[in-house]
Design a protein around this nucleic acid. Structure first.
Length: 575
DNA sequence: GCCGTTTTCGGCCCGACTGTTTTCAGTCG
């Protein structure tokens, strides 16, 4: 049984225990153990056979026993019991915002509600509001919750939520007494999707600022408005809405507030435990000894007082970040070029010259023009003849354009049989080849599975990087089934880079896979796959993904200077 | 269920907002 499978079963067990009303501390201990196991790379089966499971922090006798049971039988008796016991209506009702375990159980008991339709009927008929302890306001709140879920109230891609948050932050700057505004929450941690937008503002007129916030023209619904916190929903560009929380924090507490509302929740719990161990307490207003605030104005000061180095927001996930010195993570300033972009030659909107000029404005030293190969007909992929002409065109612009190195590249399709879409003679003329799978067939047409196709491309001497390796589109298309440990090992061995595609729809490799690639000793590239000049700005999304993976600039191919890049390519071709 | 530089038992992060009550429980983050 793989670690991943064991983790999945333990998570399911924790979820069901929670639904069954098991006390929170026991449920949490399972969740904590799972996080710890994730961070612990050793094979659980091996550890179980050596009786060493309890060496994992957070795993004691009880959980070790569960894991041993899974390893030896592949099943978990307690999980099977709970699956029978927990009623199916419970998770359905709990998924509605405004409904927790108490009210859900009450509504089920009094009205026999078991599904969404029944819940709606109970609200519309007024029966729900008549239940003692509930009321009209509660019924209205649940109705709004249902509407939110039905209008696609799921998680929103980072690339959609971030610009929205930034635009809102700009408006919040002008509310009463506001001196400073910061985006917090999972958005600040750079998660690939977010459930809501958290914004902090520094002001001494909290109540007034919150009132003004809830009256902004973008606001659709006001969920709460108090002295320090306001909660609203705003419209999403593609329909639906997203929740936005604004917290008003005074200067002396701003760092503590930022820390608290950046999370993650689990990271905060670790910090608060650490504070308790020092006989202090930590909340969103500061680090306190009794009622005396020791620090609170900045995150840096709080980490320092707790005897910790500053932890970059992207790493605050309780994955062991407090137990090791955080690396000097890659930043946007480290990027010296973009090695995957398109032009009008295939399906881009701008010319080679325009892409080069836009890259120069962003301070880049080099770019690679990588238009589609012939099989990507839908993307106007280049036939061999058109590619030959395009090669001439790129060379011509490269000669005429001082100040930036333009690499002659292509995004060459990986075909279903593992062959590349261009013969080696064409690839050999390129400076930089990105190989990507666009065809995803798994039926009879596919002679090799996605893993084998990717491995074949990795081994080609002309392939410098694998583009968007899993092919997933966030919230729209699942990743291909790829054996990632094999792929990252082969990439590292062959000197083939794996791409973090920074396009907001992709972010592929995702953070965990990028972390695997780094652990295997591989090299990454962070590229925008831009189809127009403005899309070059998506680089920052790739950067936060790389930071979440713990990447430093040393392991990113487009963070080296042009000469080093040429050496890296030469090494790959010689290999 | 886990854990220990005060602890092998008794803790386990902490606060805001709302609604229904009449001093607080439920929900959320």
């Amino acid at each position: 049984m793989t670690n991943e499978a064991i983790i999945e079963m333990l998570e399911k067990l924790a979820d069901l225990m929670e639904l069954d009303g098991v006390e929170a501390f026991r449920v949490n201990s399972y969740r904590r153990a799972v996080r710890s196991i994730r961070d612990f790379k050793d094979d659980l089966t091996v550890l179980a056979n050596q009786n060493r499971l309890t060496e994992i922090p957070g795993v004691g006798k009880g959980i070790a026993g569960r894991i041993a049971e899974l390893v030896s039988t592949g099943r978990l008796a307690e999980l099977e019991t709970l699956e029978q016991k927990v009623p199916t209506w419970l998770p359905t009702l709990l998924a509605m915002p405004g409904l927790g375990p108490k009210k859900a159980a009450l509504i089920h008991e009094k009205l026999g509600v078991t599904d969404l339709a029944g819940l709606k009927t109970a609200i519309e008929s007024g029966k729900l509001a008549e239940i003692p302890g509930l009321g009209d306001a509660t019924a209205k709140k649940i109705a709004e919750g249902i509407q939110f879920i039905e209008s696609g109230g799921g998680r929103v891609p980072l690339g959609i939520a971030l610009p929205l948050a930034e635009a809102l932050a700009e408006r919040i700057r002008y509310l009463s007494g506001v001196r400073r505004v910061e985006i917090a929450g999972s958005l600040r941690r750079g998660k690939e999707t977010v459930a809501d937008i958290d914004i902090l503002c520094e002001t001494d007129q909290g109540e007034k600022a919150i009132k003004e916030f809830t009256s902004l023209s973008d606001v659709r619904r006001v969920l709460a408005a108090g002295e320090t916190k306001g909660s609203v929903t705003i419209k999403l560009p593609e329909g639906g809405e997203i929740q936005v929380d604004l917290r008003a924090i005074p200067t002396e507490s701003f760092g503590a507030g930022l820390m608290s509302f950046t999370g993650s929740k689990e990271h905060n719990i670790r910090l608060r435990e650490r504070a308790i161990a020092c006989k202090w307490s930590l909340n969103e207003y500061g680090l306190f000894e009794g009622t005396n605030r020791l620090v609170g104005e900045s995150e840096e000061a709080i980490y320092a007082k707790l005897g910790l180095p500053f932890v970059p927001p992207e790493l605050r996930e309780d994955r062991g970040e407090l137990d090791r010195l955080p690396a000097d993570l890659v930043s946007l300033d480290d990027i010296r070029g973009d090695l995957h972009m398109h032009t009008v030659a295939s399906d881009g909107r701008n010319s080679i010259e325009e892409m080069a000029a836009a890259a120069q404005m962003r301070g880049y030293e080099f770019i690679a023009i990588c238009d589609h190969s012939k099989s990507s007909t839908i993307a106007n992929g280049l036939s061999i003849e058109r590619m030959e002409q395009h090669i001439e065109g790129i060379r011509r612009v490269a000669r005429a354009k001082p100040g930036i190195h333009i690499l002659l590249g292509c995004e060459c399709d990986i075909l279903l049989d593992g062959q590349l879409d261009y013969p080696d003679e064409i690839l050999a003329k390129c400076d930089w080849v990105v190989a990507s799978a666009h065809a995803r067939a798994t039926g009879p047409a596919a002679k090799l599975n996605p893993t084998e196709r990717t491995l074949a491309a990795i081994e080609n001497r002309y392939v410098c990087a694998i583009g968007h390796p899993t092919g997933r589109l966030i919230n729209r298309r699942p990743p291909m089934e790829i054996d990632m440990p094999r792929v990252v090992a082969a990439a590292a061995k062959n000197g083939t880079c794996l791409e973090i595609n920074a396009s907001w729809q992709r972010l592929d490799l995702k953070d965990e896979h990028a972390q695997m690639a780094l652990a295997a000793g591989g090299t990454l590239t962070i590229n925008t796959d831009a189809h127009s000049t403005d899309q070059l700005d998506q680089m920052r999304l790739g950067i936060v993904t790389a930071r979440r993976a713990g990447a430093t600039k040393q392991s990113i191919a487009n963070c080296v200077n042009y000469n080093e890049l040429r050496k890296l390519i030469a090494r790959k071709r010689g290999a």
